[in-house]
Amino acid sequence: MRYRRPGLDVFSHLLLILAVIAFLFPVWMALTAATHSRTDLYTSIAPLWFGSEGLHNFISVLTEPIPGVGASASTMLLNSLVMSLGIAFGKIAISMLAAYAVVFFRFPGRALCFWLIFMTLMLPVEVRIVPTYQVVADLHMLNSYPGMILPLMASATATFLFRQFFLTVPPELLEAARVDGAGPWKFLWDILLPLSKTNIAALFVIMFLYGWNQYLWPLMITTDQSWTTVVVSLKQLASASDALVPWQLVTAMALLALIPPVVVIIVMQRYFVKGLVDSEK
């Protein structure tokens, strides 16, 4: 709705601009700080414009082991990427299958399964972290990708989202598929999966960010430096060094950590906005 009130327009724009500045300022600070040398950062007041050390800082972060962490940023980026992709794909696969079973199949204990999944919603990772650690340790999965990914893969939230979506699929579609000779797998693969692609896109974004931002779990189960993830390293980098904090490296790391989530959002946004616009149901 549009109101003809110029005062209101000016006011709301002012408010928006202020908010944008408030949100962008730290990013700007990080961006400029990452381009100065450590001496610059400690001898003068915080610079608000670019320095000349940018390229050098980023190259050194990406290629050399970072003091206090022990792995280079490229290793950590890879670790983070594998972990969050694993979690995102794993969550989508598992929760889609779980929702498929709960919605489309009649089997004894269906309601029980449903409630068990529902109950796990009430238990965040932190609550069950000690027993989970025990299990992962017993399976010799410390310091490994499976150990980082598997315990975080089950997702009640995604199962629910898929369940809600599956419930809106007209039952005649399943019946038509049965008459057309499509078994359960074919129905899932040929019909349900293409229909849920916008849901999958949205969930992928959420789950990728969730995986990317994991802190506690990777911190606990990775003792070897070569398994450190980017998010974990940020904290180590900023606190572990014995002398002065290398802010130029910390901010460079932080910026590198920002890139993959931003890319994922920008790429996937196209898909799910498209999906929202031309609803196919």
Binding site: E172, L173, R178, D190, I191, K281
Partner: peptide, 20 residues
């Protein structure tokens, strides 16, 4: 027998076309 094995074809009230 499963519907597909009965060699029947059905036309549904809401057509049930695969939307994608």
């Amino acid at each position: 027998k499963e519907p597909a094995q009965r060699d029947i074809a059905m036309v549904f009230q809401n057509y049930a076309l695969y939307p994608h």
